[in-house]
Structure formats: structure tokens, C-alpha cells
Design a protein around this nucleic acid. Structure first.
Lengths: 126, 126
DNA sequence: TTACATACCGAATCTTTTTTCGGTTATTGA
DNA sequence: TCAATAACCGAAAAAAGATTCGGTATGTAA
């Protein structure tokens, strides 16, 4: 993550800009977790158990770079305690996140059924 | 595109479901074009000139499979005339698309500036 | 001391997605 | 006949993205 791309990317397209910031596989889940008060990397990872810790770290780093989250690190205390919070920019993503999640939840059963259909098609033509 | 995945994918997560349907690089642009009355593959490709025709075809096939668009093909006429239209499902994606695009447009300049910053960082540590 | 927990990073590897390339088929018009 | 256009497809290649692995450092508690 956080890489300069070889293929030209059109940042004049709003959709492409938006997806660059929060299009990552776990980004919206991470922002949601932080919003729900789960603010430390290890805690976020426990919440989103499918994602490896390394991914949480990398996507946090990217969200940090683009200013969607901010980091507060208390070096003295123990455990080391890094905490991430939503910035004003990050907060503007939440309404979108909620609507995207709502859309997906509504159509979840349908998409799952289609997925089964697809798996059957693939196994027949193996 | 349209592949069965090796990595487990959590379709219980609304965000993951949504991104599966319209998370592709050009999907929302294609849906938007169709909504604006640009309904044939070649025409869509002229509209979204950055995307190769093959990509338009593949992403249309995927949107078709998941029922976000429908295809009307008049075999007799010439030119061959395949036309794609939004289904009811496809239309439900439009409001999200508009908001995502609006968000990206608002933050476009900021993200572009960050991108310049990143490119400078990368070239220094080359 | 040993084991454990936290945060984080580099690099290799794997998976998925996107792109490029070279076809096929069919019809129109010069 | 020959060029042009439309739709579409398979397969390889390239790129991007995600994951695994092993490492650092720090401090706590058994």
C-alpha cells in the first residue's frame, strides 16, 4: 500500500479519488471500528478477525497519510498504546460507509445466491 | 473478472457485498454512462476513454451476471447494436455512485496534492 | 529467565484485477 | 474485393493489492 502507480490514474474522476482513499479491502471497516471507539491496532484486528494485523497497520498508515485518521501515541505508558481517531475528513466518509454497508446488507442474500450459481458453473466447466 | 476466489470472502459484510458488485475500477463510471443514455459498449468506451474496450466488456458481463444491467441485442439490425440498460437493482446503485463521486470531487485537489507529496517522497528514497 | 503483549516494518509471495494482444463473426459501403 | 465498424472472447502479461513470515523494540507479569 501507499505506492506510486505505473498506470496513469485519473484523479479528475471523483469516483477514482474516493476509491483511492477508502476503496481498500478493509478501510471502511477500520473507519467504522474507530468510530465505534475501537481505536488501537490490536483491538481493531480482533474486531475484523479476517484481516491480518499487517493489513490493519498498512491501511491505517494509508488513512493516516491521506488525513482520514490521526494518531495519538503515548510512548511512556504501557502497553505501548497507539490510538487512532477520525479526523474531520474521516468523519465525512462515515455517511457513505453506512449507505454502502446498508446497500450490501440488503442485497447480501441475492449476491450470495449468485455466488453459488457461479461456483456451480465453474465446477461444471473445470 | 467473474472468478471464484481462493481467499475466503466475507459476504456477511455489507461493504464487501457492495464492493463485489460495484467496486470494480470502472463499474460506477459504466453505470453512470448507461444512466446518461450511453448504452452501447463502443459508445461507453469512447466516453470512458481511459478504459480499454475489453474492460468495458468484462465489467458489463459482470454487472449483467449480478443483475445490475440487462442486455438487449438486436441481431438483425446493423451495426450489431447491443444495448445495456439499468435494472431496478442497478438503479439503486446510482444514489451511492453520485455521493461517492461528489465526495471524491470535493476532495480531489487535496488528494492530488498528497499524491505529489508521495511521489516526491518516493523519488528521494529511490 | 521465560513467556507474552503491543506496535511496527521489510520483503517475499500469493491472489486478484486490469490491461494488452490477437483473434472470430457479421454487415455495410466504397 | 477490401476496408471499416460493432460485439465479443481467450489467454497471456502486467499491475495492484493483500497476505504471510520473520524480524525489531519495549515493558509486564509469572
Amino acid at each position: 500500500m501507499i505506492s506510486t502507480n505505473k498506470l496513469p490514474e485519473d484523479l479528475d474522476c471523483g469516483i477514482r479519488v474516493a476509491f483511492k482513499i477508502f476503496g481498500g479491502k478493509w478501510k471502511l471497516c477500520i473507519l467504522d471500528a474507530i468510530n465505534r471507539g475501537i481505536v488501537r491496532p490490536a483491538a481493531i484486528q480482533k474486531e475484523i478477525h479476517e484481516a491480518p494485523l499487517r493489513v490493519i497497520e498498512m491501511q491505517l498508515a494509508e488513512l493516516l497519510f491521506y488525513g482520514a485518521v490521526e494518531k495519538k501515541c503515548d510512548e511512556d505508558s504501557y502497553p505501548k498504546k497507539s490510538e487512532y481517531f477520525l479526523t474531520e475528513l474521516g468523519k465525512t466518509i462515515l455517511p457513505l460507509s453506512l449507505q454502502i454497508d446498508a446497500w450490501g446488507t440488503i442485497h447480501s442474500a441475492f449476491v450470495k445466491a449468485k455466488q453459488v450459481e457461479l461456483n456451480e458453473m465453474m465446477s461444471l466447466s473445470k
